[in-house]
Design a protein around this nucleic acid. Structure first.
Lengths: 207, 207
DNA sequence: ACCTGAACACCGTTCAAGT
DNA sequence: ACCTGAACACCGTTCAAGT
């Protein structure tokens, strides 16, 4: 009779994520995770090939969880701009409650530690969906603009980068309103003017 | 006669940054840095207290370099919007040429590995300056919005997060124009409407 | 099939000893 | 004043051996 399975992918992910949130990504060692799931370090290599696979389990778990949150919001209001705002708030809430997992989600220390593209698919799909209903034209640049801002804001906030005082909540609302508002205006006069002028003045990447 | 100084802060920073860019942050070990500066590992502890101080040297060096780039751009054009666009391009160019140092700049793995606030001061000062000349009202939320977007975009780009195809350069220009344009419109009708409506509908952080 | 102890090559860090 | 070898407690990872 073979030994009963003591370690599952789900228990591994849960253990790793708990350690990550309470003690940081560096504390997610093979030894620490093994101890939490009640097994000796070498046994983990029956389930993962390398330590970064453990981090990837966290990232994919986070992608699934946030993907669920975001998907649940799509179609929640008849005004797509409210949906978009709700999504941004959901991302920020997730980042506040699971900052380490959130960090792994968009900027893992190495590509191998980041989420699978299959893991990210539902999240990205729902996001593109919401953007498509809000902004005219190609949703991809618009979605990238919104995603980059939300991700950047939350990461900087969690990293403690906003040191100059002021109300950080207010800055989030300001940025959100500015962006959502601008994205619905695409195509109106005034846009694309800077690109044209700065291209005139020389190279594309001034430094 | 005491032994001549073989290690300076500048040589340490340069060695660490070279290793970081060529082999990743994880490769910036005390041993590796010591080998590059031509000394045994324990000797480094005469100059830094911990490994994260070495990472901080990289972060502060990056802050200084990007700060110089950005400061040189302020006042470069009579149109402040062009200055802002130039700054965004400078950040992206820096992130492309020094992705690991750039990562340390805004989202270090731990606060101790991040830049000093003194190191960040010139960069942040110039950025606020440029925003103040462009956007009406409080420059802080506007600067945070722009910074979060640029940082998020560059980090995601370097992490290979833009996997859905499309032109990433175009997405950058799109986001930049959208944001700079929106920031100069602050106060016009249409803004702040979402916040008001989404506050109506319940909690501030829906999830 | 899964788990284990022992072993290997590496870390970061400390410290007494050298010049 | 700076550098060093030796040492410590830790990693990640491999592998032959157990059940």
């Amino acid at each position: 009779m073979p030994a009963p399975q003591r370690v599952t992918a789900a228990s591994l992910a849960a253990a790793a994520r708990t350690i990550a949130e309470s003690s940081g990504i560096d504390a997610v060692t093979i030894s620490a995770v093994a101890a939490v799931v009640g097994v000796r370090p070498p046994s983990l290599y029956k389930h993962v090939g390398h330590r970064h696979d453990v981090l990837r389990l966290i990232a994919d778990d986070a992608a699934r969880e946030l993907g669920d949150d975001v998907t649940a919001l799509v179609g929640t209001s008849s005004d797509p701009r409210i949906v978009l705002a709700g999504i941004a708030h959901a991302v920020r809430a997730f980042s506040a409650r699971s900052p380490r997992a959130a960090g792994l989600l968009f900027s893992a220390p190495s590509p191998e530690a980041g989420p699978t593209s299959e893991g990210m698919a539902p999240l990205i799909g729902s996001l593109l969906d919401a953007v498509r209903r809000t902004a005219p034209g190609d949703p991809l640049p618009a979605a990238r603009t919104l995603t980059a801002w939300v991700y950047g804001f939350c990461t900087m906030e969690q990293a403690g980068a906003f040191q100059l005082g002021g109300d950080v909540d207010e800055a989030f609302e300001f940025g959100l309103n500015t962006l959502v508002d601008a994205l619905t205006r695409v195509g109106l006069p005034g846009r694309a003017s800077i690109a044209a002028r700065s291209t005139e003045s020389g190279s594309e990447y001034p430094q």
